[in-house]
Design a protein around this nucleic acid. Structure first.
Lengths: 108, 108
DNA sequence: CGTGTAAGGAATTCTGACACG
DNA sequence: CGTGTAAGGAATTCTGACACG
């Protein structure tokens, strides 16, 4: 990766565009941030900037909300997902460690 | 593709962010549009929106300009590139036609 | 030709708050 | 709890123009 993040992860979209893209109001988008469901970056002046991944996350949140799921519960589910991901990554790293130990020591 | 365009092509970035990303002034970015080097979309209200592909294009343009290449010349080069792409695509389509003619008629 | 800048107006975004439920 | 809204201010964006070169 040339810049640390892919197009999908780079935070470059302003809240107005996110609102158009998701159909959510800016109020809703800001509230979901308050509830720690979404984590925009800030421009120098303080404007929120979102990634495509954030937009997709928001669409998921919107669907859950329509089903009546509360933001608190959505947060719980997100944390579970995150742990699963971490477990996966640890397995990968262990495997990599095994391979390096036997076949050589390429950093990264 | 789920929406006609990939993350790279979707026009969602405002001119201020493009300016930060490229280091070009808004004035320059608008001028390159005037010279038909770049083609942002417009939001409902009229604000320009760019894609990551546009951002990369602008970086290329900036490099050419530093070398003293004029916008007119840059445009010429772009048109040449475009023709090459089209020629490639025509070849692909012809090949596909050949295959369909011999082995079956799957549309698309 | 390519870019800076001041100008004026319209739309954007931000925060903190009140409202309803 | 989740969302709407009015409030006031600061930053954003737009266009058309003058300037310099």
């Amino acid at each position: 990766m040339e810049h640390g993040t892919s197009y999908k992860e780079r935070k470059v979209i302003t809240i107005g565009v996110v609102s158009e893209l998701t159909g959510l109001s800016e109020r809703q988008i800001r509230y979901y941030e308050e509830r720690k469901l979404i984590f925009p970056e800030r421009s120098p002046r303080g404007n929120r900037k979102y990634s495509f991944a954030d937009v997709e996350q928001l669409v998921d949140i919107a669907n859950k909300r329509e089903e009546g799921v509360q933001t608190f519960e959505i947060r719980q589910e997100m944390l579970k997902e995150k742990k699963k991901e971490e477990a996966k990554n640890i397995k990968k790293e262990m495997l990599r460690g095994q391979i390096n130990a036997r076949f050589g020591v390429q950093k990264n």
